[in-house]
Amino acid sequence: TEEFVRLWREAVRHNQTLHWNGTDFIPGDEWAEEFARREEEKL
């Protein structure tokens, strides 16, 4: 979602874990980066 992408970019900028829907998205984590890339492509 647009909100997820916005929060993810913020988390990456501050190198912080994003807690989203009970899942931890960690900047630099391969799975999280791939998920975020797919979400961005949907926008």
Rank of each mutant, 00 (worst) to 15 (best):
H14G: 10
G28Q: 02
A11M: 02
W20V: 03
N15S: 09
G22V: 01
R6S: 07
W8L: 06
V5I: 15
F35W: 09
F35L: 05
Q16F: 11
I26C: 11
N15F: 07
W31D: 06
A36K: 01
A11S: 05
G28F: 03
G28D: 02
A36F: 13
T23M: 15
E2S: 11
V5H: 07
K42R: 11
D29P: 02
H19G: 03
A32E: 01
T17Q: 05
L18R: 00
L7C: 15
A11K: 01
E3D: 13
W8R: 01
R37L: 09
F35C: 10
D29Y: 04
T23S: 11
V5M: 13
H19K: 09
F4Q: 00
E34L: 07
F25Y: 15
G28R: 03
H19C: 08
Q16W: 10
E34I: 06
A11V: 01
W31V: 08
D24M: 10
W20Q: 00
A32Y: 04
D24H: 05
E2M: 11
E40G: 07
P27V: 03
H14E: 13
E33S: 04
P27C: 10
E30T: 13
E40R: 07
A36Q: 02
N21T: 04
D29Q: 09
Q16I: 14
E3A: 11
L43F: 09
V5D: 08
D24L: 14
L18Y: 00
I26F: 10
A11Y: 02
L43E: 04
A32I: 03
W20D: 01
R9V: 07
D29N: 11
A36N: 02
R37Q: 08
D24N: 09
F25A: 00
E41W: 08
T23H: 14
T17S: 09
N15K: 12
T1Y: 12
F25Q: 00
T17M: 10
R9A: 12
H19A: 05
T1Q: 09
E3V: 08
T1I: 14
W31T: 06
I26Y: 09
L7S: 07
F35K: 04
Q16G: 05
V12G: 00
A11F: 02
W31E: 07
